[in-house]
């Protein structure tokens, strides 16, 4: 157990390998719990969690909500479109109003990078970052690494992971890079040069603009969606060209390691970054990722609730 007890989970950066191992071993127990006939525990019956989603979300929101409910927590859900934020209220005022109703923990998704970090300095409650702009998405990285670790029997050391697609606008990519490197994996990012951040190599990753070469190098391919909603200009000529150069299809799979593990954080744009037959193939663990997401979020909530992370 780490002595560096965290009050928040704001990002992977700042976590130690021991803390990640503790989250994983706790999630193992929750995975077991989720297989039992009764999937609920009353562990967080004293805790109220507010899910603040200032951006659209399906998977993450449902996953957090299920995790909270299975831990017995009381929950309140909030989305910016149906709230006083649209009337001009500031983030701190919104959150403090919610906290005055005796909320213990906040799960927040926000379009601004650093929003959860900012909030953690101004409000008195525990905060879990469920995605802040193009910055970090720590629980997604944890569930991705947890899924790989389970597939490779608890050892990611030396595994080669290529993250493919819109690296520039992806919070999943950055959190994955931090997390996988901490666990001893080698990471490569691959995509059009325009969608790879200029200084990404400073994180210690390899960079490729050729998907076929990258796939031949890799044990795992994590395919990312093109984040159209964050693109303020055109980064590539057309979706069709992107799909031709960076889409993972069965033709490409013929020339790579037959055991290549295929992952995707969702939502999938079938036919763009990944074809349907690859997404549904035996190489894919996309649905296991979703299942593991609930266990990982239960572990994070459980450990943060007793300030033991």
């Amino acid at each position: 157990m780490s002595s560096n007890n965290l009050n928040h989970l704001l990002g992977i950066k700042g976590l130690s390998k021991e803390q990640i191992d503790l989250i994983f071993s706790t999630a193992d127990n929750f995975l077991d719990l989720l297989q039992a006939p009764v999937k609920k525990t009353p562990a967080l019956r004293d805790i109220t969690v507010a899910n603040l989603f200032f951006e659209n979300s399906t998977r993450t929101r449902v996953s957090f909500e299920l995790a909270e409910k299975r831990l017995g927590a009381d929950i309140v859900n909030f989305s910016s479109s149906s709230s006083s934020v649209s009337k001009g209220e500031t983030l701190i005022d919104t959150v403090n109003n919610i906290l005055s109703m005796k909320v213990d923990m906040i799960v927040m998704r926000h379009p601004a990078p650093g929003a959860s970090q900012f909030l953690s300095k101004h409000v008195k409650c525990q905060i879990i970052n469920a995605g802040d702009g193009t910055h970090e998405h720590p629980t997604q990285a944890l569930l991705d690494a947890f899924s790989m670790r389970n597939h490779y029997k608890n050892n990611l050391s030396g595994k080669k992971v290529v993250i493919v697609g819109d690296i520039k606008h992806s919070r999943v990519a950055l959190s994955n890079i931090y997390c996988l490197q901490l666990l001893g994996a080698e990471v490569m990012v691959c995509g059009p040069a325009t969608l790879i951040p200029k200084y990404i190599e400073s994180t210690g990753v390899k960079v490729s603009t050729n998907l076929d070469n990258a796939l031949r190098w890799a044990d795992v391919a994590n395919m990312l969606r093109i984040q159209m909603e964050r693109q303020d200009e055109r980064y590539f000529p057309s979706i069709r060209e992107y799909s031709t150069l960076y889409g993972l299809n069965m033709e490409r799979m013929k020339n790579v390691n037959p055991e290549l593990l295929i992952m995707h954080p969702g939502p999938i744009n079938r036919g763009v970054e990944i074809s349907s037959d690859v997404a549904d193939s035996h190489n894919s663990i996309i649905l296991q990722q979703v299942e593991n997401g609930v266990a990982i979020r239960m572990a994070v909530l459980f450990l943060l609730a007793q300030k033991s992370l």
Partner: peptide, 10 residues
């Protein structure tokens, strides 16, 4: 849970 002592599951 959350009342001071830390419990790590086995």
């Amino acid at each position: 849970i959350g009342r001071g002592e830390i419990h790590i599951p086995k």
